[in-house]
Amino acid sequence: MKFLKYALLASTLIFASCTDENDTPPVVNEEEVITTLTVTLDSGTDQIVLQYQDLDGEGSDPAVITVSGSLSVNTVYNGSIVLLNEIEGENINEEIEEEDLDHQFFYTVGSGLNVTTDYADADSMGNPLGLSFILTTSEASSGALTFTLRHEPNKPNSGLDNAGGETDIEITFNVTVQ
Protein backbone atom coordinates (compact mmCIF):
# COMPACT_ATOMS: atom_id res chain seq x y z
CA MET A 1 0.00 0.00 0.00
CA LYS A 2 2.80 2.38 0.97
CA PHE A 3 4.60 1.51 -2.21
CA LEU A 4 1.56 2.35 -4.26
CA LYS A 5 1.16 5.70 -2.56
CA TYR A 6 4.76 6.58 -3.31
CA ALA A 7 4.49 5.35 -6.85
CA LEU A 8 1.38 7.41 -7.23
CA LEU A 9 3.13 10.43 -5.82
CA ALA A 10 5.94 9.94 -8.32
CA SER A 11 3.50 9.66 -11.19
CA THR A 12 1.76 12.78 -9.94
CA LEU A 13 5.03 14.66 -10.17
CA ILE A 14 5.66 13.35 -13.66
CA PHE A 15 2.21 14.22 -14.85
CA ALA A 16 2.12 17.55 -13.08
CA SER A 17 4.63 18.76 -15.63
CA CYS A 18 2.16 18.02 -18.42
CA THR A 19 -0.61 20.13 -16.97
CA ASP A 20 -1.22 23.66 -15.94
CA GLU A 21 -1.79 24.08 -12.26
CA ASN A 22 -4.55 26.59 -12.78
CA ASP A 23 -6.49 28.30 -10.07
CA THR A 24 -9.96 27.43 -8.93
CA PRO A 25 -12.46 27.25 -11.78
CA PRO A 26 -14.77 30.24 -12.17
CA VAL A 27 -18.37 30.04 -11.02
CA VAL A 28 -21.08 29.55 -13.62
CA ASN A 29 -24.40 31.20 -13.03
CA GLU A 30 -27.21 29.88 -15.14
CA GLU A 31 -27.80 32.38 -17.92
CA GLU A 32 -31.11 31.07 -19.10
CA VAL A 33 -32.81 30.41 -15.81
CA ILE A 34 -35.94 32.42 -15.21
CA THR A 35 -36.08 33.00 -11.47
CA THR A 36 -38.99 35.37 -11.26
CA LEU A 37 -42.29 35.87 -13.00
CA THR A 38 -44.31 38.93 -12.09
CA VAL A 39 -47.82 39.45 -13.41
CA THR A 40 -49.23 42.92 -12.86
CA LEU A 41 -53.00 43.37 -13.25
CA ASP A 42 -53.91 47.02 -13.51
CA SER A 43 -57.52 48.21 -13.54
CA GLY A 44 -56.56 51.89 -13.65
CA THR A 45 -57.55 52.38 -10.03
CA ASP A 46 -56.19 49.21 -8.53
CA GLN A 47 -53.04 47.09 -9.00
CA ILE A 48 -52.80 43.39 -8.15
CA VAL A 49 -49.41 41.67 -8.37
CA LEU A 50 -48.94 37.90 -8.75
CA GLN A 51 -45.36 36.82 -8.24
CA TYR A 52 -43.40 33.57 -8.45
CA GLN A 53 -39.79 33.73 -7.27
CA ASP A 54 -37.36 30.77 -7.10
CA LEU A 55 -33.82 32.05 -6.71
CA ASP A 56 -32.13 28.64 -6.77
CA GLY A 57 -33.85 27.48 -9.96
CA GLU A 58 -34.24 23.72 -9.96
CA GLY A 59 -32.45 23.58 -6.60
CA SER A 60 -34.27 22.16 -3.61
CA ASP A 61 -35.39 25.45 -2.06
CA PRO A 62 -39.12 25.97 -2.62
CA ALA A 63 -40.37 28.93 -4.64
CA VAL A 64 -42.06 31.90 -3.01
CA ILE A 65 -45.49 32.51 -4.52
CA THR A 66 -47.35 35.68 -3.61
CA VAL A 67 -50.68 37.19 -4.65
CA SER A 68 -50.98 40.78 -3.45
CA GLY A 69 -54.76 40.83 -3.13
CA SER A 70 -58.16 39.93 -4.53
CA LEU A 71 -59.51 41.00 -7.88
CA SER A 72 -62.66 43.07 -8.00
CA VAL A 73 -65.87 41.81 -9.62
CA ASN A 74 -66.85 42.96 -13.11
CA THR A 75 -63.56 44.73 -13.78
CA VAL A 76 -61.26 44.94 -16.78
CA TYR A 77 -57.56 44.62 -15.97
CA ASN A 78 -54.60 45.34 -18.22
CA GLY A 79 -52.20 42.48 -17.61
CA SER A 80 -48.46 42.51 -18.16
CA ILE A 81 -45.83 39.87 -17.53
CA VAL A 82 -42.20 40.50 -16.57
CA LEU A 83 -39.62 37.69 -16.50
CA LEU A 84 -36.35 38.11 -14.67
CA ASN A 85 -33.17 36.19 -14.07
CA GLU A 86 -32.34 37.74 -10.71
CA ILE A 87 -29.10 35.77 -10.37
CA GLU A 88 -27.65 37.51 -13.40
CA GLY A 89 -29.79 40.65 -13.07
CA GLU A 90 -31.32 40.15 -16.51
CA ASN A 91 -34.70 40.94 -17.94
CA ILE A 92 -35.77 37.95 -20.02
CA ASN A 93 -38.64 39.82 -21.70
CA GLU A 94 -36.17 41.25 -24.20
CA GLU A 95 -35.17 37.80 -25.40
CA ILE A 96 -38.78 36.73 -25.68
CA GLU A 97 -39.63 39.83 -27.69
CA GLU A 98 -36.64 39.26 -29.99
CA GLU A 99 -37.72 35.66 -30.59
CA ASP A 100 -41.44 36.40 -30.57
CA LEU A 101 -42.19 33.85 -33.32
CA ASP A 102 -40.76 31.10 -31.09
CA HIS A 103 -42.74 31.96 -27.97
CA GLN A 104 -46.30 32.26 -26.74
CA PHE A 105 -47.96 32.67 -23.35
CA PHE A 106 -51.17 30.83 -22.55
CA TYR A 107 -53.62 31.60 -19.74
CA THR A 108 -55.57 28.72 -18.27
CA VAL A 109 -58.53 29.65 -16.10
CA GLY A 110 -59.56 26.99 -13.62
CA SER A 111 -63.17 25.91 -13.35
CA GLY A 112 -65.11 28.02 -10.90
CA LEU A 113 -63.05 31.13 -11.48
CA ASN A 114 -65.14 33.72 -13.27
CA VAL A 115 -62.46 35.31 -15.40
CA THR A 116 -61.78 35.60 -19.13
CA THR A 117 -58.55 36.50 -20.85
CA ASP A 118 -57.58 38.01 -24.20
CA TYR A 119 -54.25 38.62 -25.86
CA ALA A 120 -53.23 42.28 -26.07
CA ASP A 121 -50.11 41.91 -28.18
CA ALA A 122 -48.88 40.02 -31.23
CA ASP A 123 -45.68 38.72 -32.76
CA SER A 124 -44.29 39.97 -36.06
CA MET A 125 -46.57 37.57 -37.96
CA GLY A 126 -49.66 38.85 -36.21
CA ASN A 127 -50.11 35.81 -33.95
CA PRO A 128 -50.49 36.27 -30.19
CA LEU A 129 -47.37 36.53 -28.01
CA GLY A 130 -49.00 37.16 -24.66
CA LEU A 131 -46.62 39.32 -22.61
CA SER A 132 -49.58 41.76 -22.49
CA PHE A 133 -53.18 40.67 -22.05
CA ILE A 134 -56.56 41.76 -20.85
CA LEU A 135 -58.25 40.01 -17.96
CA THR A 136 -61.93 40.56 -17.33
CA THR A 137 -63.65 39.43 -14.16
CA SER A 138 -67.36 38.81 -13.64
CA GLU A 139 -69.00 37.48 -10.46
CA ALA A 140 -67.24 36.67 -7.20
CA SER A 141 -65.39 33.38 -7.31
CA SER A 142 -62.00 31.77 -6.73
CA GLY A 143 -59.82 29.27 -8.50
CA ALA A 144 -56.58 28.56 -10.30
CA LEU A 145 -55.06 30.86 -12.89
CA THR A 146 -52.17 29.27 -14.78
CA PHE A 147 -49.58 31.00 -16.94
CA THR A 148 -47.78 28.81 -19.47
CA LEU A 149 -44.94 29.89 -21.75
CA ARG A 150 -44.24 27.56 -24.63
CA HIS A 151 -40.99 27.59 -26.57
CA GLU A 152 -41.25 26.86 -30.31
CA PRO A 153 -45.02 26.27 -30.30
CA ASN A 154 -47.02 25.68 -33.46
CA LYS A 155 -48.29 29.09 -34.48
CA PRO A 156 -51.12 29.83 -35.01
CA ASN A 157 -52.87 27.46 -32.61
CA SER A 158 -56.18 27.27 -30.86
CA GLY A 159 -54.73 26.83 -27.40
CA LEU A 160 -52.44 24.60 -25.36
CA ASP A 161 -53.97 21.42 -26.76
CA ASN A 162 -52.43 21.86 -30.18
CA ALA A 163 -49.65 24.32 -29.38
CA GLY A 164 -46.90 21.71 -29.01
CA GLY A 165 -43.40 22.97 -28.21
CA GLU A 166 -41.68 22.79 -24.86
CA THR A 167 -42.81 24.33 -21.63
CA ASP A 168 -40.53 27.14 -20.45
CA ILE A 169 -42.88 28.30 -17.74
CA GLU A 170 -45.91 26.81 -16.05
CA ILE A 171 -47.10 28.53 -12.90
CA THR A 172 -50.44 28.36 -11.17
CA PHE A 173 -51.73 31.10 -8.84
CA ASN A 174 -54.80 30.80 -6.65
CA VAL A 175 -56.87 33.88 -7.36
CA THR A 176 -60.00 35.26 -5.72
CA VAL A 177 -62.55 37.58 -7.28
CA GLN A 178 -64.70 39.47 -4.75
Binding site: I34, T35, L37, Y52, D54, G57, E58, S60, P62, A63, T167, D168, I169, E170, I171
Partner: peptide
Protein backbone atom coordinates in the same frame (compact mmCIF):
# COMPACT_ATOMS: atom_id res chain seq x y z
CA UNK B 1 -41.26 15.56 -7.47
CA UNK B 2 -40.01 19.09 -7.53
CA UNK B 3 -41.90 22.16 -8.66
CA UNK B 4 -39.94 24.64 -10.71
CA UNK B 5 -40.88 27.60 -12.80
CA UNK B 6 -41.06 25.22 -15.79
CA UNK B 7 -43.49 22.90 -14.08
CA UNK B 8 -42.86 19.65 -12.24
CA UNK B 9 -39.81 17.47 -12.48
Amino acid sequence: IQQTIRGSF
